[in-house]
Design a protein around this nucleic acid. Structure first.
Length: 213
DNA sequence: AACAGGTTCAACCGCTCATGA
DNA sequence: TTCATGAGCGGTTGAACCTGT
């Protein structure tokens, strides 16, 4: 009596989506909204796994997606957020309207990793590459360490030292985000993902406006 | 022009988390 | 409190595309 599989593998398509499948999925979501991914494929007449539908919608079909090159600002923001959060791609995506976790993850692997390496920075630890010892620091994310060290003034406990120019910790990553947390328009998605991402990220305030020093 | 190697992107897989009975 | 189920996340893979030889 194991857990039931997420879908009938024998009767589901795999691989690239066809235009018709895309159209069906978009039409269904427009009519019924997001959610119930497990039952969606059947209801929409798709021979796909619910997870696959969800992914296709989130990463490719959503109307509010911003496709195209990342800006320098987005680059910097991703780097800073990664320093704070690690590989929490969905949280990072929540701070970059129109970007998806998958897109950011890919972009990180293809572009930013190299950028950091070229600067002599270890993309995993955000420490200078030169010191192997540095890489062996107690935490994989030094910035998280700094945040932890600041626990005495954490927003959860006091919120007192959360002003944008407070230098608690002495790093410029004391940020508070000013990006919109709501969907840009009523017709765009409820973005449960973003909502969740936002809620999970509340511990860390990141200010997009301050990331340009 | 043809081939090989490298890069990029979309999609899948397996795990964890959240929620409800 | 425990268990079952659905949803979401992050890592990985594979095919298509690009570039250099």
């Amino acid at each position: 009596m194991g857990r039931s599989p997420c879908c009938e593998k024998a009767h589901t398509n795999k691989g690239a989506w066809t235009k018709e499948e895309d159209q069906r999925l978009v039409a269904y979501i427009k009519a019924h909204g997001e959610g119930s991914w497990r039952s969606l494929p059947k209801a929409a007449g798709l021979q796909r796994c619910g997870k696959s539908c969800r992914l296709r919608w989130i990463n490719y079909l959503r109307p509010d997606l911003k496709r195209g090159n990342f800006t320098e600002e987005e680059d910097d923001l991703i780097i800073k957020l990664h320093g704070l959060l690690g590989n929490k791609w969905s949280v990072i995506a929540g701070r970059l309207p129109g970007r998806t976790d998958n897109e950011i993850k890919n972009y990180w692997n293809k572009h930013i990793k190299r950028k950091l390496l070229a600067r002599g920075i270890d993309p995993k630890t955000h420490h200078p590459l030169s010191g192997a010892a540095a890489a062996a620091a107690p935490s994989s994310h030094p910035l998280q360490d700094q945040l932890a060290a600041r626990s005495s003034c954490s927003p959860e406990t006091s919120g007192a030292c959360h002003s944008s120019d407070d230098d608690c910790g002495g790093i410029d990553l004391n940020l508070s985000i000013s990006l919109p947390r709501e969907p840009p328009s009523p017709s765009s998605l409820p973005t449960t993902q973003e909502a969740e991402a936002t809620s999970r990220a509340t511990v860390v305030d990141v200010d997009a406006s301050s990331e340009k020093n």
